[in-house]
Nucleic acid binder design. Structure first.
Lengths: 339, 339
DNA sequence: CCAATTAATGTTACTGGTAACATTTCTTGG
DNA sequence: CCAAGAAATGTTACCAGTAACATTAATTGG
């Protein structure tokens, strides 16, 4: 269990410690038989380089900071898994922090990660305006945004085409014959909330269906938010025939509200979600939703951040927008709806 | 954005760098007005200590390694959140690795974490025999097991009383009048699988109900596992009246199988789960299950590991066993069952 | 009021790697 | 076969902190 240093190895192999360092770093300027000699000493002694010393001197920790809103939220957990796997492949480890969607806590996370010495940070849940992230970017610190974007478009990000996904879902409802379509949208100070709302509005517009302000409610991306909003929407005199959930959690909350109010889905109203999370296929009514490549987003984000870390001075921004996919299940009915 | 060192601060404050170091470490051997002078320079210059240098010289990274079977599994994600929050409070950051329940990958995770220089490791999903973890423990490296335990009891762990939880659930079924009770258990090379199986058997025994080997199937803690096993159990000539899922995922798979076979829960058979994960209350049939304090387990594990890191030579093992709680919903029916 | 003691501050060395430059050893071609 | 250049190896310094000891300043009691 004794910890050896390169100098110990050097002595054992009868060379200087620099030669050992060169062998360790695959420097070609080492003769083959010297390399073998050193390699032998290394394996015999069970030498392991001291990561801390190396990080200290090279100013590279091989650590990526990950700021999620809540790691216990399966959506973010899945992004995290995508991030972890790719990071592992590229020789990085990842430290995660939950920000709880809270600017204050986000700042604490960033400070903490900076203190820990991460080489770059990935944010999964920025607000359109997020001072902590923006400051990092301004300072030239490697940052990649996943899932949600900042207002400022001049940064690396990978997202789903939320506009398109929402547009498609809305159009699907319209094609089924629904006209009175409400939306319980995520807050529009979040890019995901905003883009999905825009997609919804554009689809209505393109099909000549007027917007009705009372059919649009913004809330948090949570079952509770969906539940409360649905209770408002479903008691309207002129109740919507279809409700779009800003994500699957909101849709879940809508289902809870429907149950509480004695309404059935899709008989009394249609429902859509967004994300195609695991439980969407397993809920009481199987949910029609928009799937996005969650795991892949994480994986791509790592690719980008490592790129950025390695050749620091990228003068362009990586922008990756993945295509979503409408998954049709039973929550909108299958028949054309009565006019 | 310039990076200052303690020597820069020292020069600015007109003291030696050691005095700055003392101020930084709250060493009482600094006169009040010297301390102020230094403090002032620190804030004015925006000095931040270099974590890498500090970690290097103190041999302490303030990093905890976390090995979960899969971060995208909500159960582990919630443990992780408990771990993260407590670690944050105690000044640690956490690096996570997903092992996929795979000995090989577990070894890779451990190696990776060791290389990164973590001060200790938390394992959430060891097998009863897990060479990588056992070696660490043998070497005196700080390790805490959460959720699952090793066969070797001489290590720190925090788990739920799985035996008791399973016993309670079984007894609940018995009290409802069920006698033909099957179990789709997690693999018994995992402590959770084994203990829950034991609890089931003991409850049957205590109530004088003979075990029927064909009613016991072991599988992975997954919906797929539950689905496949349920298909076997539910086509038995003498079908069980009740099935206990080794965890909520297995129970979910059982629900899928029931649907596929045209059976209703609880009319055709009763069903229980374990863990009280989020979706247990939201599944088609609301699931009677055993809740455990998932978040708390993580939190306690951090407490223990930090303890262990700080006063390395603990000569006793922390063993924390939390009590589970039976959550009765609708999947077992509410009436006493016909004999 | 000054010697003895204690408190405050400073100096030097050290951690385990890598960078930069110096030196030695090997090639190669005239 | 040897000088010149290239390749291999070695030396020294450095990173930004902390530990251990040295020195200086302040306090205290006879």
């Amino acid at each position: 269990m004794k910890k050896y240093t390169i100098r110990d190895v050097a002595k054992a192999a009868g060379v200087s410690h620099m030669t050992v360092s060169r062998v360790l770093n695959n420097n070609p300027r080492v003769r083959a038989n010297t390399r073998e000699k050193v390699q032998k000493a290394i394996t015999e002694m069970g030498y392991e380089p001291n990561a801390m010393a190396r990080a200290f001197v090279t100013k590279k920790s091989q650590l990526i900071g990950l700021v999620v809103s809540d790691i216990s939220n399966p959506f973010y957990a899945e992004i995290s898994r995508g991030i972890e796997d790719k990071a592992f492949d590229l020789g990085y480890s990842v430290i995660f922090c939950s920000s709880d969607e809270n600017t204050h806590r986000t700042e604490a996370c960033v400070k903490n990660l900076l203190r820990t010495g991460v080489d770059g940070m990935i944010f999964t849940s920025v607000h359109l305006k997020e001072p902590a992230a923006e400051k990092l970017i301004a300072d030239g610190f490697p940052v990649v945004l996943v899932n949600r974007k900042l207002r400022n478009p001049n940064c690396h990000y990978v997202t789903c085409n939320n506009f398109q996904g929402s547009y498609d879902a809305t159009e699907h409802l319209i094609n089924l014959g629904y006209k009175k379509i409400g939306i319980i949208s995520g807050y529009s100070h979040l890019s995901t909330g905003l883009d999905r709302l825009k997609g919804y509005k554009k689809a209505l517009e393109d099909h000549g269906i007027p917007q009705r302000p009372e059919y649009i409610i913004e809330t948090s991306f949570s079952a509770d938010g969906g539940f409360e909003a649905a209770k408002e929407l479903l008691v309207l005199k002129d109740r919507p025939e279809a409700i779009m959930g800003g994500n699957d959690y909101i849709a879940l909350g809508v289902m809870d509200a429907a149950e509480a109010l004695g309404l059935s889905i899709p008989e009394d109203f249609a429902l859509t979600g967004f994300d195609n999370t695991d439980f969407a296929a397993r809920s009481r009514t199987k949910l029609t939703t928009v799937s996005q490549k969650i795991y892949e987003m994480g994986s791509i984000a790592v690719q980008i951040i490592v790129d950025t870390i390695d050749r620091k001075n990228l003068d362009y921004a990586h922008k990756v927008v993945l295509n979503p996919n409408l998954i049709i299940r039973e929550s909108c009915g299958y028949q054309l709806h009565k006019k």
